[in-house]
Each structure stands twice: as structure tokens, then as C-alpha cells.
Nucleic acid binder design. Sequence first.
DNA 1: CCCATACTATGACTTAAGTCTCATCCTCTC
DNA 2: GAGAGGATGAGACTTAAGTCATAGTATGGG
Lengths: 231, 231
Amino acid sequence: MYDVSAPDKSKLSQLLSGIPYFRGQGPAVVAALAACAIPRTFEVDAIIFWEDQPATGLFLVEEGTVKISRISKEGREHIMHLISAGDTFNDVAALDGGMNPATATACTAVKVWEIPREDLRRLAEQYPQLAWALVESIARRARHLVGLVQGLALRNVRGRLAHLLLSEAQNLDSDRVPRMLTQEEMAARVGTVREVVGRALRNLANDGIIEFDRHRIVILDPDRLAAAAEV
Amino acid sequence: MYDVSAPDKSKLSQLLSGIPYFRGQGPAVVAALAACAIPRTFEVDAIIFWEDQPATGLFLVEEGTVKISRISKEGREHIMHLISAGDTFNDVAALDGGMNPATATACTAVKVWEIPREDLRRLAEQYPQLAWALVESIARRARHLVGLVQGLALRNVRGRLAHLLLSEAQNLDSDRVPRMLTQEEMAARVGTVREVVGRALRNLANDGIIEFDRHRIVILDPDRLAAAAEV
DNA sequence: CCCATACTATGACTTAAGTCTCATCCTCTC
DNA sequence: GAGAGGATGAGACTTAAGTCATAGTATGGG
């Protein structure tokens, strides 16, 4: 048992050191976190946790992609975040101790580490730099949420879609958004339905702002795309 | 100078002790916070800070109401929070060190205390319980934002309005929402325009869920109002 | 008491978004 | 290379939301 988990834990230390907010924490903190982290794996489409259930801890993604979303009573899904390796999720519930505000689903096979809330709290009180790192981390998450709120309240579908395309393109440091994004997925991310996304895309293409290269979207005019995304 | 500020500072300590997240911090922490807090006053409609400006610190309201909002390029305002005495604002920017994500305006004459980011950070690293209190505070703020996002993405105007009425009524522990809320204000809070709010209210009234008593809104059927607010 | 002002009511109309439906087109497997 | 299944394109239609215009109604100050 110990022999099996030992290599995992060292991998975790490495992972933790590579994460922005745990970088600069020093080996003691990393080791302490690694000591209480629980490894978990999920297969594609597995539910990691449901909304409105008590939070168990903070999750850290080692491998794979996790979707944080919520489904309306009419069955429409809204994707709030897509979390990839090296990032955390369920910060909110793990840190305020309330219920999970959304559902987490494995988009791919996923390996995560879970740090129980109580351990996190204990370590935060023991290592002040860790506490501050958590503060900055959750503050950044809140900032992202503010952006979402403003997008939904002040932008129309075209604007939100333009914003999504820009941020996806930025993620790849390229003007080519890979078509991992189906229209269905884009719809869930901007809070609308597939057909409307299709229309908005054709619209942007008619305006010469983007074009389709087979089934990839190519950004022709980043400036006008950014203008379309302005609040 | 010292004589003038002394009573203010003691008032601040009292205020700080009364705030949920600073309660249980012990007098040393409260005194330390009070020592670096800067008092500021604003008259009605004064801008406390603008969005996209560098954050100066965390604000704590002693008296009055502060509006946190953003205006679209077409001139539509969206109110994200209304902050009243005993609560903090600009947590996000103060804690992550980025730009202010929204504009803060004094809705009434306002007295606030500002705790500079660097002082906050120093004290947080010195007093671990303070750091954890900040973590929980910003996590709660993030939770509120998640609620806003989900409301905007998954509820229609009627649903968001129902939600607003319920939370306003709850704030007063009563089923009577005082008409401090104009339709214009409700519109800004649910992210729409005045006429649409008016229609939605008449709609709820036709359905027997609310009624108008002069210019107050009376909730007749909290259950059906809650059903209308469901995501 | 009257008027100015701010808020509300309401209808007519436009536009954006959502729904329904079906054709088409990849791409992967057999 | 045929067919199945997922993804897209697109038209027709419905509905929610937003805009415009205008009239009514509080209400507080002079």
C-alpha cells in the first residue's frame, strides 16, 4: 500500500510546486499538503460531485479536464468553468464550508487530488503564506465570475461568443481555435442553444471577422472580434 | 489631529468587532486593522472608485449604502451588489491585486474605512485567523457571484425578479418589500430595463402571487414566488 | 393648492433569442 | 465504400425581451 502510493505522492509534490498559487510555498508546505491529499480517479462523463451537496474538499487536477456546470429545470446546461491540469476546483464550497454551488463532471478520464477542508484550514493557519495564496486564488476565481456576470448581463450572444473565441484563441497563443469546441459546447458556455451559436458564427463569418477552415474556426480580424466582445 | 481621529478609531474597532468575519478575531487583530484603516466619506452619488483602475484597498462600510455596478457601452447599468453598513466591498481587487472589476458609487452619504492591500496582506501573514477569515469572506462573495451567473444564464426576467423580491423580503424578515426599490432599480439589478420589470410585476400580480399596496409590493404567495424563482 | 418631477402603466412595434424541423455533411467503423 | 451517428446549415415560426411613445399618478416643495 505504502509502496503504491509513494510515487503518487511525489508526483503530487511536483504537481503542487507547478501550480501558480502553490509555487513559492516552500517544500514544507507542499509536503504537508501532499500528506493529506486524497487521490481520486474518474472515467469520462463520471460525476465528481453534485450541486447542493456538502463540500468535501478542494480538488486539484493532475490530469484531464473537468466541467463545472449547472442544468436548468428545462434541461439547459450552463458551463461555468472548464478546469484543466494544474488548476483547482470547488474552491468556493471548500473554503466557505457551504454546499457545492455547481456540479463537476469529468470531460475526459481524470486524476484529481482532494484536500479536505479541515486539513486545508489547519495548514492555512499554520502556514500564513499558504493562507494568502488561497486568498489570492479564490479572489482570482471571483474575478472570473464577475467577468461572467458582466458578460451575461451586458453582452448579447454575439458578444459573448466573440469573447469566448478570443479567450480560447489566447489559450493556444494562436489565431486558430481548434474545433474541440462543438457548437453545442459553445452554446452551453455562453448560455444559449446550438442553433443560435450557429447563426452567430455564420454572422461573424459573413462580416469577415472569422472564417471556417474545414471545421476549424479561424480568426481573420482579431480587432473587430474584440470590438464585438466589448461590454 | 490625533484627538480628532481617536474617537473615529474606537468606533472602527467597535464596527470591526460587529462584522461577521472579523468577529472572533480577538482585540489584537481588530486593533491592528483599526490602526491602518483610512477613513473616507462620500456624498450621495459620488464615485468611490472606477472600474479598471488599480485597487487601493479593501473597503468597509460604516454608514450608508454603496452600489457596485457596471455600465455597458449602450448605457445600460447592471448592479452587481448593494453593500450596506458592516459589509466590505472591493474584496476581489484588494485581495488579488488586479484592477477594480466594477465601479463603486455612494447611494447615500457614506462613511467607509479603507484598509490598504499591503497592510491587509501583512496582517494576514501575521495573524493566521485573519487570513482564514478573509478566505471565507471572499469565498462567500464568490458564492454570491455564482448565484448571479446561474440566475442570468438559466432564469428569465420573471424568474430573476421573483428571486430579487424574495431576497429583499428576506432582508426584512417580512413579506413586505418596501418600495425603496423603483422599477428602474430592479431592472438594473436583474439586468433588464424598466418596462420589462413593470410587465413582469403586473404578470406576477395577475397570477395572484404578489399585489400592490399603494406603491409597495406585497408577497401573497411566497411558495409560488419561490417556484417562479427556481432555476 | 399647484406645479415640477419622478415614478408608473400600457399599448404598439422591433429585434434578439429560442424552438422545431429537416437536409447535409463529415468521419469512423465495419 | 456503405451506413450510422454526431455535427452542422438553414428556413420557418414562436416567444421573450427591448424600444418607443404617451398618458396617468403620486408627492413634496413653494
